[in-house]
């Protein structure tokens, strides 16, 4: 993993600094530049909605935070610590497996296609990682799983397998499964895009509930403009691998300054 040596690590107070910080992050696939010197800061407990046309790098931001993609250049900090590189004797080196796993423990992710484990019941899906990764006893993990599944409204589907659940229910299990790891940052990657329209509401309601009840920083890539408007503290409009415009939802959705933002929102409006 290459790290730009010109970017110095600025010490950040773990308590008060931003929860997530991208510094001049570059990412390209061959000649296609996906992220272009991206700078982004997300405060603790902040809820950020990421919107933008397809190919603008929205999902890549989340996948990089989850360490599913490598970065070409720049730095990402989570909870004040560098994510893809680490400090060894004052020198910045690429993260080893141990550091990556410690950092991943702070982050949870929900995917567009749920990615539930098909050979496990809803409850087992939620218990697996707490048992194997956090070392919880079966009883503790089960209690946690039951509590979270009730929270997402699936207390009566504990022993159902993913194939026996609707898309909306599967996505709610996936949210509970991610929360079972008690992450500080939750990433939602187009979590309603694969759902039938009538199932979108139940998933969004769960996300509202998490936002209200849990102290967790949230980054959400979404095409649900109405939801982004109501839910987010800040909306970032991505275009060409950069943040083209950002601000509180009232500003972005009501009086966007940038012409591209206006075009995008107009196109979204026409599509609905």
């Amino acid at each position: 993993m290459s790290t730009d040596p010109s970017v110095a690590i600025s010490p950040v107070d773990e308590r008060s600094g931003p929860m997530v910080r991208f510094e001049k992050v570059m990412k390209s696939y061959g000649s296609l530049v996906v992220l272009n010197d991206l700078d982004l800061e997300v405060a603790r407990g902040e809820k950020v909605a990421i919107i933008g046309p397809s190919g603008s790098g929205k999902t890549t931001v989340l996948r990089m935070l989850m360490t599913l993609e490598r970065i070409d250049r720049g730095m990402i900090f989570v909870d004040g610590e560098p994510l893809t590189s680490m400090n060894r004797n004052g020198e910045l080196v690429a993260s080893d497996a141990k550091h990556l796993r410690r950092m991943r423990g702070k982050i949870g992710m929900v995917f567009q296609h749920f990615n539930l484990f098909p050979h496990m019941s809803a409850l087992k899906n939620c218990m697996e990682a707490p048992c194997t990764v956090l070392g919880l006893s079966k009883m503790e993990a089960e209690a946690r799983g039951r509590e979270l599944l009730s929270m997402v409204g699936l207390g009566d589907k504990l022993f159902h397998y993913p194939s026996q659940l609707s898309g909306g229910q599967q996505q709610r299990v996936a949210i509970a499964r991610a929360l079972a790891m008690r992450p500080k940052v939750m990433l939602f990657d187009e979590v309603t895009s694969a759902l039938d329209p009538e199932l979108v509401g139940e998933v969004l309601n769960v996300i509202r509930k998490i936002a209200a009840e849990l102290d967790v920083t949230m980054l959400m890539v979404t095409h649900q403009m109405g939801f982004a408007k109501e839910f987010a503290d800040r909306v970032c409009f991505f275009y060409g691998g950069r943040i083209c415009e950002q601000g509180p939802p009232e500003k972005i959705f009501v009086s966007p300054e940038n012409e591209r933002t206006r075009q995008f929102l107009r196109a979204c409006l026409e599509a609905t």
């Binding site: 599913l68 697996e128 990764v133």
Partner: peptide
């Protein structure tokens, strides 16, 4: 499916797990 591997990364499981 690759999504299954990605889910294990998101849940912080080791490759062996």
């Amino acid at each position: 499916p690759r999504g299954q591997w990605e889910a294990t990364v998101a849940l912080n499981m080791s490759r062996f797990q």
